[in-house]
Design a protein around this nucleic acid. Sequence first.
DNA 1: CACAGTACCTTGCGCTGCAAGGTAGGTCCA
DNA 2: TGGACCTACCTTGCAGCGCAAGGTACTGTG
Lengths: 114, 114
Amino acid sequence: MADASQLATSLRRGTLEFCVLAMVETEDRYGNELVRRLGGEPGLAAGEGTIYPLLSRLRRSGWLESKWVESPSGPPRRYYGLTPGGRSALDHFRAEWVQFRQTVDRLVGTGEAA
Amino acid sequence: MADASQLATSLRRGTLEFCVLAMVETEDRYGNELVRRLGGEPGLAAGEGTIYPLLSRLRRSGWLESKWVESPSGPPRRYYGLTPGGRSALDHFRAEWVQFRQTVDRLVGTGEAA
DNA sequence: CACAGTACCTTGCGCTGCAAGGTAGGTCCA
DNA sequence: TGGACCTACCTTGCAGCGCAAGGTACTGTG
């Protein structure tokens, strides 16, 4: 039911989309680039089958906008950028995340007050 | 898609079960008690429809054990306690959580190190 | 006895992450 | 030219979890 990989998967839920928003906050990025970058993040690695549907959802939600850009070598890329709505959603998440993190730290005790 | 309540719901995913494990770590507790206690935790409030199936899953996983205890007033209660397997799962989660939390903090930037 | 309160559980749904499969354009080299 | 390989995009079907809503049963009170 919840072995090591399942654990990481469950933790990702609901957080991944905001990590993606944060990654395109300062600079436009394209799908495959995000897959590679997330692959290097411990606990957040996600494949194409996760990222592409996620990007589509965020686009439909009006949080991301995209534009096609020719690649210097290879097929064209769809670059994603943050919309004003996406920025405010990200800000909202940041506030919620801080509170959530504190609650979990206090409840499960990260080991400092055991 | 992901408004305020949806956001909190998604964050809960995968974390709630370990918060429950932590809550019965030092003392046996029963279902309704856990529902009430979680109700007071910001970002973790969960109803009966969430907690009871969760407790059943944890029991089937061998992480929790339960015993029926007569109540001084009202129907009997099913008290839950941590098994050795549950304790090791909780320890595993603690390690995973710290890493995950750090990754998210770094990626989305909680504002302190922006 | 009816009613309210406590405590347990189940059903059906929606959302999300994922593995697997599929399309198409570009590059390289023989 | 043609085939192999890479890049980059997207879709389908499945599984798990949280949840609202609905349901059962026991206890105490007026």
